[in-house]
Simulated assay, not measured.
Amino acid sequence: MARILAIDYGRKRCGLAVTDVLQITPGGLATVRTHELVAYLQSYLSREAVERILVGHPRQMNHQESESMTYIRLFVAQLEKLFPSVAIELVDERFTSTLAQRTIREAGIGKIRRQADKGLVDEISAVIILQSYLASRDGLGTIHLPD
């Protein structure tokens, strides 16, 4: 088997998460500046077998796509050209930032570190995207997001 990689794509930086090779356990991988993301992915995929890349699909409460999909579509098209043998899939990312911030607070990470390490939210958001995908794929339902 190969890993599954999740990306919480942002205009400034992107959070990345990845599974183990058995696709059981998701974990944070990195936070990367958006303009460095493609080079990072090329390097990572040259070292690690990845069968699927999940990209967060931002939607509004009414299920319409957010305006950031313009940039995400371009990014996904670039991924499809660079990695034709890797499946690329959009995964609903509503509330991932909210859940990530809650997770960080509940983990006891102090306010100063939270403010200094904004990338931590992005990385944890990618982990949540990946957890949600794995749960739905394995028939465990989805992670319940706040209304």
Rank of each mutant, 00 (worst) to 15 (best):
K118Q: 13
R73V: 01
Y71H: 08
V76Y: 09
I7W: 02
Q101I: 10
Q131W: 14
D138G: 15
D117I: 03
L22V: 11
E80D: 11
Y9T: 01
V127W: 03
S132L: 07
H35N: 14
F75E: 05
E123K: 12
Q78F: 12
I88S: 02
V76M: 05
G10F: 00
S97E: 00
E106I: 07
Y40M: 04
I104T: 07
S136R: 15
I124P: 02
G119I: 11
I104Q: 02
E80N: 09
C14S: 15
V38W: 05
G28W: 01
L134F: 14
A126K: 05
V76W: 08
G56R: 12
Q64A: 09
I129N: 02
F83W: 13
D8K: 02
K81R: 12
T31L: 04
K81E: 08
L45D: 03
T25D: 01
V127G: 03
V18K: 07
R73M: 01
R3N: 06
E93W: 03
Y71D: 06
T31D: 00
A49R: 15
S125V: 00
Y9W: 10
Q131R: 15
E51P: 01
T96S: 08
R94D: 01
H57A: 08
S85I: 02
D122P: 01
E65F: 10
K111P: 10
A6P: 09
E80W: 06
L74G: 00
V76C: 07
K12R: 11
V55D: 09
T103R: 04
K118Y: 05
G10C: 00
N62C: 11
E93A: 08
R73H: 09
K118W: 05
V32I: 15
H57D: 14
H35W: 12
L79Y: 12
F75P: 01
P146S: 02
R11A: 13
I24G: 10
I128F: 10
A107F: 04
A6Y: 14
G10R: 02
V50Y: 10
Y9C: 00
G15K: 12
H144N: 13
V121F: 00
R47L: 04
R73E: 04
L130F: 05
L5T: 03
V21P: 14
L145M: 10
A2R: 08
I4G: 10
G110P: 06
D20W: 08
R94K: 07
D147C: 07
R52V: 10
S66T: 10
L37R: 07
V38N: 06
A126E: 00
R113Y: 05
Q115F: 03
Y71I: 00
I143M: 13
Q101T: 10
A17D: 04
F95C: 04
Q131F: 09
H63D: 11
A100M: 00
D20R: 12
M69W: 09
G10D: 02
D8R: 04
L120I: 00
L37D: 02
L79V: 09
A126G: 01
T98W: 07
V21K: 14
